[in-house]
Design a protein around this nucleic acid. Structure first.
Ligand code: FES
Ligand code: FES
Lengths: 146, 146
DNA sequence: ATAATAAAGGATAAAATAGTCTTTTATTAT
DNA sequence: ATAATAAAAGACTATTTTATCCTTTATTAT
């Protein structure tokens, strides 16, 4: 287990994939191609994208030439929106040692150091926009595949 | 889900508890008192400590006046030993987006930023020693309870 | 030696996460 | 209108994580 749940890892990779495959040309990309492109089990990914679609994080249309895409607003959203939607806010605000709530008044031994790391994670995910890596993904400098 | 598994959270809290309760006086502390002290389910914690004991991270003796304790060598060990034993090394070396392996040659979009955070976590856990907070725990300045 | 104590070990149980399959609904091209 | 296409929805299965319970083994005090 890493920092994110498997569901969340797939979600982030899928959204990056959709972004770089459909940005600009107003195209759509189907679940099959996404699953292949990010090396994920297709039916499981379908469920995940269904959820992201309901939440408005990705856009989709049914039928021929249908598929998933991202509008301009979505491309500008921070990665933290995906993480919050899928894994919740624990990673941003929760106590590292699992206390009910992280607090300055009743801190756990790791509080000070951990708070710092947690904030760096939050900052990174908040500053990173979904469409930010499109160029590098198109040119193959960055990878979404296992 | 936080950074660590529930098992690992309990493990760290329990080891901190044993440390500050038994350091110096060569005493022992029983599972019941530990479970109470860190707000964890007793039988589950028993399993976890059993495992840590087998691995030599905590010490224990059976019978009357028995219980768990930490020898001087154990008090000097870094927290990263507990995390590695319980959750494995993914948090120290794994790719944040779940690629089979994190690599400079085939990096994921978050690689550079994530590597930095991962290293900070590794550094924090490696620099923090198990017996480091004993004073603050005894005086009640730090908490292990939900 | 014996009884009491406390951890170790093993076998299950419950809950959450991960993954699959089948049917329905919306869209589009013919 | 009709057939083809692709996502949405829903029901289901598998695996992993979290948690409990019961028996055995080691230690100690009497
Ligand atoms: S209390 Fe544990 S991280 Fe703040
Ligand atoms: S490749 Fe993803 S963190 Fe290094």
């Amino acid at each position: 287990m890493g920092i994110f749940s498997k569901t969340c890892e797939y979600a982030i990779r899928a959204v990056f994939f959709i972004a770089h495959r459909t940005a600009g040309q107003s195209g759509r990309v189907g679940i099959k191609e996404i699953a292949l492109g990010i090396d994920s089990p297709e039916p499981f990914l379908a469920k995940i994208l269904q959820d992201l679609s309901r939440r408005g994080i990705v856009q989709s249309t049914k039928g021929p030439n249908g598929g998933f895409y991202l509008d301009n607003a979505s491309l500008e959203r921070p990665l933290s929106d995906i993480v919050a939607a899928v894994d919740g806010n624990d990673i941003f605000f929760g106590c590292g040692l699992g206390l009910k709530q992280c607090s300055e008044i009743n801190p756990c031994p790791l509080h000070n150091e951990f708070k710092d790391i947690r904030n760096k994670i939050h900052f990174m995910l908040h500053e990173t926009k979904i469409g930010e890596f499109n160029n590098e993904l198109v040119t193959g400098m960055l990878s979404l595949k296992k």
